[in-house]
Write a protein that binds this DNA or RNA. Structure first.
Lengths: 148, 148
DNA sequence: GTATTATTGAAAAGAGTTTTCATTATCAAT
DNA sequence: ATTGATAATGAAAACTCTTTTCAATAATAC
């Protein structure tokens, strides 16, 4: 994902944002992470690279990146304050309940279901959320997962 | 939904809970609502029926009802602090983006998709969330929905 | 009725997020 | 390169939502 770092910075610039060290650090962390992160996690990781990074800047940058569609919030059992790089395609999330690893997949075809629901309920469906939870290959192998 | 009020109270009693006015009010409000509610909304509505109801009691009752599987938290764009009566069957949610009206539906068959994803990703899938958003018939008719 | 103990509401504490504000740093125009 | 306009920053304060604490009260079993 690291190769997208510069792309994101340019997209930010195109939106009128300045390219600052703080933003670079935050962008890099998000692009490097295999799982969705809380603002505080981004902050902690960021502090290791930029000594006096502010938590407020993390919040502001996440907000801007979400606005630009580069990251998305991830909902899960514990809340909905996790941020993950978004993909452009029409894809859905698959999340490991053990390590949090997030993977995108596509290939769902829910159009038949949609049509069926429109017919029976009268709702005009505009959006759908599909999210899967499970155990990733690495966690399955490690055997640490007892609640699989 | 009002006919379930007594059922819920009995289920609470079976769990060792006492039947108090505060709980009755909260249970009734949840069962009467066509949409998922925030704790504060339950509290406001509850105060109209029980003058000195405490917000804390609302939180505690919602927690207990969720524990018993009678209500569930609903995730949406703005957060995940909405509570809605749950259904027993394996159903999914359909929510009106305009008025919030929630409806359950069943009939999805995602097993083929699951099998496909298990094969390609190696994830052992344990759970899936499917939630649809759209405009309900009433809101469509009222014509108030411009962003349909 | 009485004793036991779950439940209550108010207040305080806590966690997470947003706002305010003076200072600093980026970028565009020289 | 220098300068000026202003976006961005970090610290502190404010704010919202939720949980904990605690003494008083009320529901249930006997």
């Amino acid at each position: 994902m690291a190769q997208y770092s510069e792309t994101w910075m340019k997209l930010l610039a195109a939106d009128g944002c300045r390219q600052t060290p703080a933003r670079r650090v935050i962008v890099d962390i998000l692009l490097e992470s295999p799982r969705a992160l809380e603002p505080m996690e981004v902050f902690s990781a960021g502090r290791e690279r930029l000594a006096n990074l502010g938590l407020v800047t993390v919040y502001r940058t996440l907000e801007k990146l979400e606005e630009l569609g580069l990251v998305q919030r991830v909902h899960h059992h514990g809340g909905c304050n996790l941020y993950l790089r978004a993909t452009n395609a029409h894809e859905h999330l698959l999340i490991c309940s053990h390590c949090g690893k997030a993977e995108y997949f596509s290939g769902d075809n829910l159009s038949a279901l949609m049509a069926d629901i429109t017919r029976t309920t009268g709702f005009a469906i505009t959006e759908h959320w599909l999210q899967l939870f499970g155990t990733c290959p690495a966690c399955t192998r490690s055997g640490e997962v007892i609640h699989a």
